[in-house]
């Protein structure tokens, strides 16, 4: 073990300038959208302050959508090209998407307590969102259980592609199953929806920047950091194996 592998040395290089810029914009954007949602947007007179959680609840789902979408794309391209970077993107997408979908699920549950008078109900939208979370949590557990790197990458690519079905179901079920009580903000809510509110200009103006941030900057920036970290972890693991074999 005379020298460190090229991968490890390359990836410990300073952060790319664009990633630095994106990180700063993301942090400032997060602070700005929080201020818009918590301070600038008016309070909902029927729901009270808890309505403001919506400015994170809905965007966080779309952030998860982007992240899981990158897992889908990463899986497809990895299977086609066998390029490990795409497998890292797929893995990073699952970790970030899972965190965002947990935020979506938990903030929704907290909103439901004062509005629906319950923390949880087996509504089609809530159930599908919970299944989506469990599906991607299982991705991480399964991935950790496969030792062979090649098999692991191929198997998890297929899993990541198939798992995206749960995202699509969660996204569209509210428009397909009329029995849901989950409100719709854009378009007509289902007949049984409870706790909806109008997308007035105040709501839209607080929501649009938040949606843009969670949909693009937050997942992409965090995933980029995670991909760089994973490259270094993989290089380190190789180095450890090399050290053990010598």
């Amino acid at each position: 073990m005379k020298s460190l592998p090229m991968d490890l040395r390359k990836d410990t290089s300073p952060m790319p300038r664009l990633l630095r810029v994106l990180t700063v914009i993301t942090v400032l954007g997060f602070a700005g959208t929080l201020a818009l949602g918590l301070k600038v947007a008016g309070a909902d007179i029927q729901q009270g302050e808890i309505q403001r959680i919506f400015y994170i609840h809905m965007p966080s789902f779309f952030g998860a959508f982007t992240a899981f979408g990158l897992t889908l794309i990463g899986g497809i391209i990895y299977l086609a090209r066998k390029n490990e970077t795409w497998d890292r993107i797929a893995l990073a997408g699952v970790e970030v998407g899972l965190a965002f979908s947990l935020i979506n699920l938990l903030t929704g549950s907290i909103w439901a307590r004062p509005i629906w008078n319950t923390w949880w109900t087996w509504d089609p939208r809530l159930t599908s969102a919970a299944i989506m979370c469990l599906t991607y949590a299982a991705y991480l557990m399964l991935r950790a259980g496969i030792d062979d790197p090649g098999k692991r990458r191929a198997f998890m690519s297929v899993y990541g592609i198939l798992a995206f079905v749960t995202v699509l179901i969660t996204l569209f079920i509210i428009r397909i199953v009329p029995e849901t009580i989950h409100p719709v903000i854009v378009g007509a809510s289902p007949q049984n929806a409870q706790g909806g509110f109008e997308a007035t200009s105040g709501v839209v103006i607080a929501l649009a920047p938040s949606l843009l941030l969670w949909l693009t900057l937050m997942p992409i920036t965090i995933i980029w950091h995670r991909v760089r970290l994973e490259a270094r972890i993989e290089a380190m693991n190789q180095l450890k194996l090399q050290a053990l074999s010598e």
């Binding site: 007179i45 302050e49 907290i110």
Partner: peptide, 27 residues
């Protein structure tokens, strides 16, 4: 009457910061 649901908002924000903090902290 507009309900006082501000403590639920505080709980929700705490959850958001804990999860995001755990994600970034894990990196």
């Amino acid at each position: 009457i507009t309900p006082d649901s501000s403590h639920y908002l505080a709980l929700g924000m705490a959850v958001v910061f804990v999860i995001l903090g755990a994600l970034v902290g894990s990196l």
